[in-house]
């Protein structure tokens, strides 16, 4: 009996947690149809999500590109196909590594910040105060954050792609003695536009996931300081897992 109750409780908690995200998504979609949209707050959040994430994202991208070039060289050297390193680096960065790694970095940095900030505002009654000050908290707090994450992620990924490819170039040309001209040609010759677009589209989806999950965790947070901590952890974990799952689904759908 106790076992069944425990399962029931777990299912109820899961359903509650999973219900939060669509609930908030619905609220956001309904409100996006009409003003006010708080443009200054959207710009402020874009700066927070985009500009402030740049160091972390670019550092991740450059080292990923460099490692990818090194690892690919080890493999391709065995059958004399070193010239394909450039293609592997650019394809991997554009299609997968750029969006996924940037997504995970932003989930850690920005997702945690969204959840902690909104959670702290919830437990200190600041969100209630917004209602009483004639301001819809979903419009004022959630929409700017979700939009900023959605809009900034493709830009971050674009930069990460470029920097990652540059990292690969530096290692291949200066450490592995590849011909620079051949490297650049091979970087672009085998690419198609869909490789770039699919990565940017994925980035936009991942941004939306990070924004919605993190804001939902913070917005519906309860239980004081401990609750804020748990909400922050859940925001990062759920965002990261959702990015990996969504990545598979999107890849299967786009390149079927």
């Amino acid at each position: 009996m106790y076992f069944l109750e425990a399962i029931g409780d777990a299912v109820q908690r899961l359903a509650y947690a999973l219900g939060l995200y669509p609930l908030l998504a619905g609220k956001v979609i309904v409100r996006l149809r009409k003003p006010p949209w708080f443009f200054p707050l959207i710009i402020e959040q874009c700066e927070m999500v985009g500009v402030q994430s740049l160091p972390v994202v670019l550092l991740t991208a450059v080292f990923t590109g460099m490692v990818l070039a090194l690892q690919s060289w080890v493999a391709f050297h065995r059958f004399g196909a070193e010239s394909m390193i450039a293609t592997i680096v650019s394809l991997s960065m554009l299609r997968e590594l750029g969006p996924v790694l940037v997504g995970l970095m932003v989930a850690g940095r920005v997702g945690a910040s969204f959840a902690a900030e909104l959670g702290a505002m919830r437990v200190s009654e600041q969100i209630d105060a917004l209602w009483t000050l004639s301001t819809d908290p979903v419009r004022y707090l959630v929409i700017p954050r979700v939009l900023a994450a959605m809009l900034m992620m493709p830009l971050l990924v674009l930069l990460a792609d470029a920097i990652g490819m540059a990292g690969g170039y530096v290692i291949s040309v200066y450490a592995l003695d590849q011909n620079p001209h051949t490297y650049i040609t091979n970087s672009y010759d085998y690419l198609e536009l869909i490789d770039l677009y699919s990565g940017l589209f994925k980035a936009m989806v991942f941004g939306t996931i990070i924004g919605l999950v993190s804001c939902a965790e913070g917005y519906y947070c309860a239980g004081g300081a401990g609750g804020v901590g748990k909400a922050t952890t859940r925001a990062v974990v759920v965002s990261a897992m959702s990015i990996l799952i969504a990545d598979y689904i999107l890849t299967a759908w786009i390149f079927k």
Partner: peptide
């Protein structure tokens, strides 16, 4: 809501 003013316990600034 503009006809209402609220002072919260912790001020909620």
């Amino acid at each position: 809501m503009s006809c209402v003013g609220v002072l919260f316990q912790g001020a909620a600034l």
